[in-house]
Amino acid sequence: MGDIEAPDSSQPRQSVLMSVLPSKEFATSRKGMLLIAEGALSFISFVCFAASAAAAFVTVPLLAFLASVFFLFAYSTKFNERFKGFCFPLMDFIRCVTSSIIFFIISIMAVSKYPDGSSKAAGIFGFIATVVFALDFYVIFNELAGFLKQRGESNEEPAGQRDDFSDSDSD
């Protein structure tokens, strides 16, 4: 029969869904939990805005959800390590800062301007998302600051050595 091979039953089959989902180690890490919370809150806020009178604000939670899912996928599959030209932590920091600010603004507008319940619910979930995004950019900022401080200390030694050599050359 030749063309069709029997599947190897000694190896467990991994479903397509399990290959797309993040690993348990990453999902239970601080970054994984923050990204999952950001994605979930953005999606809930998107659904609430879509069902409310404040449907004009539906774009922000949708874009925040898609960006959170992208970064969740990139970090969990180590996709970010393959591209050295992009600074993924900086892009993630900018995403968190802008999402936090914009979610805060549209949540205030949704709660104060629109009287229906789904607008109020979208505003409440938006405020919670604001806090989660702010916590994430705080964590990223501390990691970036520690990395830059460590890198700055390692760059100071060669500069000092170069000055010593240049002084001895001029004598």
Rank of each mutant, 00 (worst) to 15 (best):
A56C: 08
K78Q: 13
P115F: 14
L17Y: 13
A122Y: 06
L144C: 10
R162N: 15
V139M: 02
A40N: 06
A121V: 01
F133M: 07
T130Q: 04
T28H: 03
S99D: 00
V69Q: 12
L90D: 07
E38Q: 12
D136W: 12
A55I: 02
Y114F: 15
T77Y: 03
E81N: 11
D8R: 07
S118F: 13
F49N: 00
R162A: 13
I105P: 05
G39I: 03
P61L: 05
M91V: 03
P89D: 09
T77P: 03
S166Y: 10
L66D: 00
K31W: 14
G39A: 13
S107D: 04
V97A: 08
A55D: 01
A74H: 03
V139L: 03
F147I: 10
Q11F: 05
P158D: 06
M33T: 12
A40Y: 04
G39T: 05
S154Y: 12
V16S: 12
A37E: 04
V16P: 07
A74K: 02
F43P: 00
V58L: 06
F57A: 02
S168C: 09
F103G: 03
I108C: 13
F104Y: 14
F46P: 02
D163F: 13
S23G: 15
V132D: 00
D171S: 09
L144V: 11
L72R: 04
P115K: 04
M91L: 06
I108K: 06
S68Y: 04
G32T: 06
S23E: 09
F93K: 08
E25D: 11
F88V: 08
S154I: 13
M18G: 07
F86K: 07
M18H: 13
A40P: 00
S45N: 07
K120S: 12
G152T: 15
L148P: 00
E157D: 12
F83W: 11
G152K: 11
E81T: 07
S9P: 05
G123R: 03
C87D: 12
